[in-house]
Design a binder for these strands. Sequence first.
RNA 1: CGGGGCGUAGCGCAGCCUGGUAGCGCAUCUGCUUUGGGAGCAGAGGGUCGGAGGUUCAAAUCCUCUCGCCCCGACCA
Length: 572
Amino acid sequence: MRYSKYLAPTLKEVPAEAEIVSHKLMLRAGMIRKLAAGVYSLLPLGVRVIRKVEAIIREEMNKAGALEVFLPSIQPAGLWKESGRWNMYGKELLRITDRHDREFCYGPTHEEVITDLVRRELRSYRDLPVNLYQIQTKFRDEIRPRFGLMRAREFSMKDAYSFDVNDEAAGESYALMKKAYNSIFKRCGLRFRAVEADTGQIGGSFSHEFMVLAESGEDLIAYCDQCDYSANVEKVSLVADNTDPPTGSYKPAEKVHTPGKGSIDDVSEFLNRPRSTFIKTLIYKTDNENKELVAALCRGDHEINHTKLARALDVNEVVLADEDDVIRATGAPVGYAGAMGLAIPVMADNGVRSMQNAVTGANEADAHIINVNPGRDFPDARYADIRQPVEGDLCPKCGPGKLLLARGIEVGHIFKLGSKYSESLGATFLDKQGAEKHMIMGCYGIGVARTAAAAIEQNHDEQGIIWPVSIAPFDISILPLNIDDQQVVSTAEKLYDDMIKSGMEALLDDREARPGVKFKDADLIGLPLQVIVGKKGLANGVVEIKIRKTGEKISVPVDEAVSRAVTILSDL
RNA sequence: CGGGGCGUAGCGCAGCCUGGUAGCGCAUCUGCUUUGGGAGCAGAGGGUCGGAGGUUCAAAUCCUCUCGCCCCGACCA
């Protein structure tokens, strides 16, 4: 491709809207432009990267025996009502109506559509297993789209759905996908981990997330320093800190005056007691039919994990109660809630059970209670694992190992769904005995553009992107530095032709621009290699091959340049 | 959804408080010079100041409404 005929509008300045590296660099390199909040246009360079990621995905999916389909992005409401998700999915589901006032949605995922297809077309155990996938545009009306393609509302996703005759076969399909995903992300040049995950709104029995390790990641994962255990913090089942019954003597509970001290930090300092002796009491609103309020308890130096709390309460979602609800539930302003004498249900973290002579709010302004003992003072509390892990917690798998925390970008997620959708939508088959059974499903997603963005998060420097060869928009930049020097131009042209003939994807920067501009843009766009063709080098019969990743420049004779470039590229 | 902020030339911003000629840097175009890490000089083009309404002799500036965008929070008790 000739740069002069191409559209790669690079930016010298960083657009104000961008927060993280991949977003800034994609904008600066002229890969994407924003159309609306969370909605982006892909420019030619962006398209090429996405196509490469897609090609890798297709190859590995096909290799794993999956079949490509292409399902509608607009879906009739009826199917969603049938699965029960029309009401469950909430505001993230973009609902639209046609001219006849019929309800549709823009698909945020395709379980309903695929299950509908399969229930119509597949009847026999002989038809199974089958794994169907597509690469489709989805729309999820995120509360807060951000970070460019990382959390866009409209985005491209590879989604696959497997249908099996029984649980064991479904497990095999799942394992096959897990293997394929490992290959896909490895080929994309990413450093990642497959971690155990919560199943969330998709539902199902268990799942793994593929997390690209990066500081900018929106997810927190915990992993063991001794074994191979790793999980999303929402999923980590913690070994209870101490489940032994309390031993020591109970002191009488006593109300103390704590004027203006609402936070644990303040009260801890004021009473001169460590945070770990506090029982933190948070009031949550659940999304069940009564919007019931509950109190969630954990040790003062721990945090409640919303997902775990929701699971323990068997509700879809919990949100922190607002000020009015807190006052209604506790009779006190925010900051003075305590488990003693609360009229609402109490769900406590396992770590609270063995606490002795602890400190809590008094459910009245400017007062706390000391020497609170759970078994004595709020015997009705239920206990579950509802807190966030912290570094140093024991590994739930191997015991002696300690958990460490890291940030990750979720680029893929695989679920073993079971029969949730095959039951609600009636996807059945006849087994060998002629008995009608529900298919056992799995579903498997990959965020295509997010994968590309994650690659940038892991591969960049101050100058710009450093593409892994496998997903780079082109292999090599050819930089004729002196565009009015006949020898420089003709050499660059010849290299360009020869490189294309040898199978490389080359971008010839034939613009009438100064050398500095070409260098800067080449580094910014981040192709793995650059060939620098300048007067100085040609005087000695050489051009330079620069390796973007290392910055290394190698002088090579002009007639060896193509073969050397091919070799270096294949070694990267 | 709560809080904060921002919409002025393609991009980054100043001007607004205290109403009176719409500005700066980069980019773009022309010319000359320059040519191995985002050139220099000279000149030029480009703006319904997000939109609507209002106040005023006069509105980018003040008021009201509205649209869009960004950030923080939603794990603080």
